[in-house]
């Protein structure tokens, strides 16, 4: 379905991709030849069928400018985006779970209120504004961290330094979501009967909190992250553009500016498929973690 919409989009795009690729000095004959090569001379339904079957076998066509297979170009950039999203998840889990658990334990205190308001705030502020302000404060003003690029290939420390700010921009909103989620489910779990039993047995409070309550309270986080990764894909596009990092988002953005349409559709298709797969994967992981969900299948 998504593929059908994509195809309609490419077909409706004004302008001739062949003319764009060859530039203004191309002859009519050259344009004709490229038309035939790209299959643009055949009827629409044949074009669609070809696009569909090719995409199914992993062939997304060739990029207009360098004539490299689109899938190769996209796959080359994909790891950068995945690392960025993983970094974002890292931030959101590392900050969100402790803050949420802390807020639940300190119920009714000023700390809980502050965490509550701060979580709503970071959820509300759009990630690209966070990205630009982070760039301004930490990279331009304080000069603690590098501003652009992904770092030298092979130099792990350099790459990690380049990852901190963009991944913070991607993950900060989800710190808020996770903190709220963990707090709510922690409050629920702390009132559960097995916690009361553990208390009755005289187990130390620390052990009850970490071993029996928190392990259950963080389960919904996994589902939330499944949804979150899809949204982080969107934030990652902005983070890549703001911090001039390589990645699928920047690839598609640059391809739009240069009217490199096969690359646009290829990039959008790969991310969309990824989005669907991630959601499926998150569901499966929840099934394996929580026996109650699994037993329903």
């Amino acid at each position: 379905m998504a593929m059908f919409m994509l195809f309609c989009m490419i077909y409706l795009i004004p302008g001739d991709p062949a003319a764009v690729a060859l530039g203004p000095r191309a002859t009519e004959a050259m344009r004709e030849a490229l038309h035939i090569k790209m299959g643009l001379d055949r009827p629409v339904w044949v074009q669609f069928l070809n696009f569909f079957t090719d995409a199914w076998t992993g062939d997304l066509g060739r990029e207009v400018l360098s004539d490299r297979p689109v899938l190769d170009v996209v796959m080359e950039q994909l790891p950068h985006t995945l690392i960025l999203i993983a970094g974002g998840i890292g931030w959101s889990v590392a900050l969100g779970i402790p803050l949420g658990a802390w807020a639940a334990l300190k119920r009714g205190s000023p700390a809980e209120r502050i965490i509550g308001i701060a979580s709503v705030a970071v959820i509300a502020i759009p990630s690209f504004v966070i990205a630009i302000y982070a760039l301004l404060v930490f990279a331009v003003h304080l000069r603690w961290l590098p501003a652009i690029g992904a770092g030298e290939p092979g130099d792990f420390k350099d790459q990690a330094m380049h990852l901190i700010l963009p991944s913070l921009a991607v993950g900060l909103g989800w710190v808020g979501y996770i903190a709220r989620m963990v707090r709510a489910s922690m409050l629920e779990v702390l009132e559960a009967t097995h916690i009361r039993t553990a208390r009755a047995f005289g187990l130390p409070e620390r052990m009850i909190t970490y071993r029996y309550a928190l392990t259950i309270a963080i389960l919904p986080t996994v589902t939330l992250l499944g949804v979150g990764i899809g949204h982080m894909l969107s934030s990652a596009v902005f983070a890549e553009i703001v911090f001039a990092r390589p990645g699928v988002g920047k690839l598609v953005y640059d391809a739009i500016l240069t009217r490199n349409y096969p690359l646009v559709t290829g990039g959008v298709l790969v991310t969309t498929v990824l989005f669907v797969l991630i959601n499926l994967f998150a569901d499966l992981v929840v099934g394996s973690l929580d026996p109650r969900v699994r037993s329903r299948f």
Binding site: A2, L6, L233, V237, V264, T265, T272
Partner: peptide, 17 residues
């Protein structure tokens, strides 16, 4: 299927169009 597109990707695709 409309919802299955990530927002930014949808926006980018429509602007291309």
């Amino acid at each position: 299927s409309i919802k299955s597109f990530p927002t930014v990707m949808l926006a980018l695709a429509l602007v291309t169009l």
